[in-house]
Amino acid sequence: MKRKLIYLFFLTGSFIFLSAQVGINTTNPQGVFNIDGAKDNPTTGVPSAAQQANDVAVTVGGNMGIGTTVPTNKLHVNGTDPLRLQGVGTGNSTTDPLLVIDANGVVKNIGTLGALSIPSPAVFRLETAQNNFLQAQGAGGAQVVPMSMIKNSIPGLTYNAGTSTITFPAGTYQITFVYEAQHNATGCTISSYFVDFPLNATTSRIHSTGAHSEGALSNHGGTITYATTLPANRNWTISLGRGQSGNCSGAGMNLSATSTQILVFRIGD
């Protein structure tokens, strides 16, 4: 039977230690240290997979195995639902890297959500219809749209509902302005509306021009989409403007509630 052996020799005042493999509940330790929890390992040879399932072992290379006596990594755990971490703190989705498991069960880091360009959305919606919207604005003029924030999953993005102002964290974004309105004005057959989207420290004006049938309650719905890059703490006030083209001047439009929305997607760093 193998035993833990420690020999102490006194040779001219010097100490020499000799030690063998250490086994607990086994006379056939695998590696330099082996605990056989169920005492079911064979006295010779390599334990079966079922016998290793209750073992803890350390190899000469410093690898530690739980549920295996032949660990291939510094910590190698083999079992059903082998890992449980209790009391883990909340991370930062902007700066903390994501962990994945490869085909061999090895844990790896694949970067942050921002680096992977996984879209994170924020949704804003007009809750109260705006009558005579843009009536006081001529061509090139804009008016603030008082929206409410419905959803926000973009870390660091905030919204001031009192001023309809979004504050963005740094990143690349896709912003879609969806508007629905009625414009009952004689002679109004072509309308043009614009959004001044944020771009770095400036803005970029994007128009939407649509043809309409003249007459009562002409529908003036449209969608304007823009992709942009923004620095940290960039402010943008949600506004819709009356474009330079078209023949819909004078009377304002009735901007519809709920169907007028802003969709913001953060699509990466």
Rank of each mutant, 00 (worst) to 15 (best):
G45E: 01
Q137G: 00
T72W: 11
L199M: 08
G241C: 00
S14T: 05
N25H: 15
E180Q: 12
M64V: 15
G79F: 07
Q51T: 05
R84L: 02
G210A: 05
V106I: 13
A136V: 11
S117R: 05
V106R: 13
S218T: 06
K108W: 01
F33I: 06
H76I: 06
L217D: 07
I24T: 13
D102V: 08
A50W: 01
T80E: 01
F10E: 08
N235K: 13
R84K: 09
M147K: 07
A185V: 12
Q30S: 14
F124K: 08
A227N: 08
V77R: 15
S14W: 05
S93Q: 14
G243V: 03
N152S: 08
T128P: 10
N254H: 14
Q130S: 02
T172A: 15
N131Y: 14
T128S: 10
G141T: 10
V195Q: 08
T228N: 11
G23R: 02
V77P: 08
T203G: 10
S259M: 09
T68G: 03
S249I: 15
F265I: 14
Y226E: 14
T12I: 11
T260I: 13
N247G: 02
V100I: 04
T229N: 08
P97I: 06
T165F: 07
H76L: 03
I24L: 13
V60H: 02
G246T: 13
N200A: 14
S208D: 07
I190Y: 01
A139I: 03
W236G: 00
A49P: 08
T209V: 14
L83E: 00
L5E: 01
S117A: 13
A232G: 09
L217A: 10
L230E: 00
G243P: 15
L113F: 15
H212N: 09
A129S: 07
S48D: 02
L263K: 05
T90F: 15
V264D: 00
N92H: 01
T112K: 05
F194T: 04
G62Q: 08
T172Q: 12
S191L: 02
S164Y: 09
M1F: 13
A38D: 05
H212D: 04
A181Q: 04
L126V: 06
F197V: 10
G105Q: 03
K39M: 10
Q174F: 05
Y7N: 11
M149V: 09
V106M: 06
A139G: 07
T59V: 01
D81P: 01
